[in-house]
Design a protein around this nucleic acid. Structure first.
Lengths: 303, 303
DNA sequence: TAAAAATACTCCATAGGTATTTTAT
DNA sequence: ATAAAATACCTATGGAGTATTTTTA
């Protein structure tokens, strides 16, 4: 033994992650003794113990923790190296993991995936839908290639590019259709239905109405669809992004109204890791999304 | 074959650097066929050619160049990983590559090395003396651990910390000792002897005298020692940093004078790579240098 | 005493060496 | 014609498997 190997890094990373030799070995698709030997070699090579052996679990030493953090960065860089070749060919192909926030996904993803498959026949788009925080974590940990979220994100390791702005519109019971449209202050007096904690759109709506975060659990829905249905049942009013109007309100028996200026809105953008070899290609994809955004399924708005 | 290995990265890096299979193999202390095989494996793994084979030399493909750049970063990170253990122990040990600019080295290094060896008996200081530009390159490429240069350096990948300020003093023939000391404008009228191109002290001296860069080749010396000897021979006057006075002017038959305010000066500092695992230790070393700087060998100044 | 890591050993895949051929200038 | 890379073939190191023992909570 002389020089650090990739295997040792991968095995050690697995050990640091799982906290057990056996699980780590399973993760690496090898046997426990094989992994033990490599870790031992690694420690000899480094010249100091990286893990404290206990019977039930192992704990990383202080050095081991620093080592693990650096090893993770290196492994990520190596994985990206493997993807470099994909960036080389003329046409993008292979799996592309796309994360989208829930308040955008249902209204954008169908058309986006359609467009992508038309432009890049070899591409295999793998969409995932979750809240911004999770998407950003997944991006940073290389579990996602790109994410579509509300800007700004402000992560130094990520690039962000704007796709389109979208206004928020008011959804209220049909019975209220002829009433004047309330402004931000007016909304404070109404029963405003919100998405549950974690959705950025919830915060954006609250921010517009200049309301503090209310106590949890009351009058919340897990999707815009739920909120609109609740409005239809006369429970209250809600805000939804423009893009959702067509899909969510068509059959819901609710009235949709543009809000008075200053109209609330948000910027939807695409983000990806700066160091991703496919970064240049992602800018192309952003352009495709922009084109989709410019030809929206036109909602029928009053006002 | 399944997964990228460190060896492949090292071999490919050597190939990219040397431009020849044979030289690269020699560099890696293996035979040429062994290296050829690993490169071939790597290309199969990546799925695209990385080098264009010519008879006399190889050229990297576009992909190969990107690959090489990333590989270098990874190898650097791995090398740093290997050094992590050194940062763990209580006392710093092993080789420490120290770069120092030529206008500081002779006056600081002897005492610095002495102090270092006293404080860290296991440490093996390996000094190198060259101009700032080269030192910075060497730092960035991991051929140096720390460098002592004039600040600022302003490289985002480097940390810099000030060590001490030093004034410049005027050196002139003994015959001129009783004349009034010229200011910056006065110096413009005199025959000012300068270090050759590349030395930061040359630029600092010119900047103080508000002189443009003169035509090359005339009245230049390759060391402060040379300049002072030339002054002793009556050829002209020169500026030298305070720290050099004691060593360079003791036996030279020249007069040394402090300049009138605003006195020219520069800040000497220490720089190292942010990502170097020993970074914390380097701050300790900087403190040692500061202590040396605070007890200078007091020059005998007129004025 | 039970679960997990270390040890003992065996095997074979493969990295690397030597000898040689092919290639390109 | 010559220098350099590729190919062929062989050897041996060491990574990984199975079986077993040791450790500690």
């Amino acid at each position: 033994m002389q020089s650090l190997t990739m295997k040792q890094l991968r095995y050690f990373e697995a050990l640091a992650r799982t906290g057990q030799f056996g699980r780590a070995a399973e993760d690496c698709a090898i046997t426990q003794p094989a992994l033990s030997m490599q870790i031992k070699e690694l420690e000899i090579l480094v010249g100091a113990p990286l893990v404290e052996r206990g019977a039930r679990q192992v704990r990383l030493t202080a050095l081991g923790q620093q080592f693990a953090a650096r090893a993770r960065d290196i492994l990520r860089a190596v994985d990206e190296l493997g993807e470099l070749a994909r960036a080389d060919g003329e046409t993008l192909s292979g799996p592309l993991r796309i994360g989208v926030i829930p308040t955008v996904a249902p209204y954008l993803l169908p058309r986006l995936i359609q467009s992508l498959q038309r432009q890049f026949p070899g591409l295999d788009p793998q969409p995932r839908e979750t809240v911004t925080q999770r998407l950003i974590e997944d991006l940073l940990e290389s579990r996602l290639d790109i994410a579509i979220v509300a800007l700004p994100v402000s992560e130094p390791a990520l690039v962000e590019t704007a796709l389109f702005d979208e206004e928020f519109v008011l959804v209220r019971p049909l019975a209220d259709a002829d009433r004047p449209v309330p402004n931000a202050e007016g909304l404070q007096q109404m029963r405003l239905l919100l998405l549950e904690e974690g959705h950025c759109f919830r915060d954006q709506a609250l921010s517009f109405c200049k309301l503090p975060a209310p106590a949890r659990g009351l009058m919340e829905g897990s999707s815009l669809s739920t909120l609109v249905q609740m409005v239809g049942a006369g429970i209250g009013v809600t805000l939804i992004p423009e893009m959702a109007v067509e899909v969510e309100t068509r059959m819901a028996g609710v009235a949709v109204a543009r809000l008075p200026v200053p109209r609330p809105s948000r910027t939807i953008g695409m983000v990806w890791r700066k160091s991703n070899p496919l970064a240049d290609r992602f800018a192309q994809i952003a352009q495709i999304v922009r084109e989709i955004g410019q030809t929206p399924v036109q909602p029928m708005l009053r006002n």
